[in-house]
Computed example of a mutant assay.
Amino acid sequence: MNRINKKLQEDKKLLSIYFTAGYPSLNDTVDIIEDLEKNGVDMIEIGLPFSDPLADGPTIQKSSSQALKNGMTTAKLFEQLKDIRKTVSIPLVIMGYFNPMLQYGVDAFCARCQEIGIDGLIIPDLPADEYKLHYKETFEKYGLINVFLITPQTSNERIAFIDNMSNGFIYMVSSASVTGSQSGFGDEQTKYFKRISDMHLKSPQIIGFGINSEETFNQAAKYTKGAIIGSAFIKYITENGIDNIGAFTSKIKP
């Protein structure tokens, strides 16, 4: 069974952390992953930096720009991760835009992910229909879960289609804004969380965008399997470095 599915079966609310590979420094990637696991994180999303990250707010955009300046590439990331399964056992997901994967070659990219021990991919700009038509077979051949995103604007019909296609979890974007642009959840978002919860989808949901504290984590996890933190973590390592990651995670899940 894929590590993501094993993790989803655990009787707990899951904390997933996103960070940009190659940031703050080019060779920080593996240290950050190992420290996050040691500090109780359940799953990690490794951001593959891209020059035109449409869904990302300024914090993640800046980290992507810096990572690219540092020399991060798809090939470099795979080289850094080649021995990651000797030290890390939690699910690892690569999150990135489709262009670098196309440039690398989708089959070659997926094959390398399987070799290294990557469990899934999140590709915000790959539509579910396109995936189903052209790439589903390749992902499944290499044992990779493709994680689809939904937003408050996604219709129930579309959500049902995505749920039917999913073999892991659904990434529930908390709002229509870019990452890192919120400070909490209001009534509108709570209604959205409840609406999706009441649909009783077969796939568990994990909420991302706007999670930055124990309070917002608990708000999100009340209706779903857990939450994803990205911008708040990147802000933390920008300001504090990577030597005391536990000080960040302990504030989210004491």
Rank of each mutant, 00 (worst) to 15 (best):
M1L: 10
K6E: 15
K7G: 01
Q9T: 14
E10D: 07
L14Y: 06
Y18A: 02
Y18T: 03
V30L: 12
I32K: 04
I33E: 00
D35C: 05
E37T: 11
N39L: 14
I44S: 06
I46F: 02
G47A: 10
L48M: 15
S51Y: 04
P53D: 14
D56K: 10
G57H: 12
P58L: 13
S64W: 02
A67L: 08
A67E: 08
L68I: 14
K69W: 04
N70E: 06
G71P: 12
M72H: 09
K76P: 04
I84T: 10
T87G: 07
T87H: 14
S89T: 15
S89V: 13
I90V: 14
P91A: 08
P91I: 07
F98Q: 05
F98V: 06
P100L: 06
G105E: 08
V106P: 05
A108N: 14
C110H: 09
E115F: 08
G117Q: 07
I118N: 08
D119Q: 06
G120S: 04
L121S: 08
Y131N: 07
K132F: 11
E140W: 12
N146F: 08
L149C: 03
L149H: 01
P152M: 09
Q153A: 14
Q153I: 12
I159K: 04
A160P: 03
S166M: 04
M172R: 10
S174Y: 05
V178D: 00
V178N: 10
Q182A: 09
S183T: 15
G186W: 11
E188Q: 11
E188A: 12
E188R: 09
Q189I: 15
K191C: 02
Y192W: 04
F193T: 05
K194Q: 14
D198Q: 02
Q205G: 12
S213P: 00
E214Q: 13
Q219E: 11
A220N: 04
A220S: 09
A221H: 04
T224E: 04
A227V: 09
I229R: 01
Y236Q: 00
I237L: 01
N240T: 03
N240R: 10
G241D: 00
G241M: 04
I242M: 00
T249R: 02
S250R: 15
I252H: 12
P254L: 13
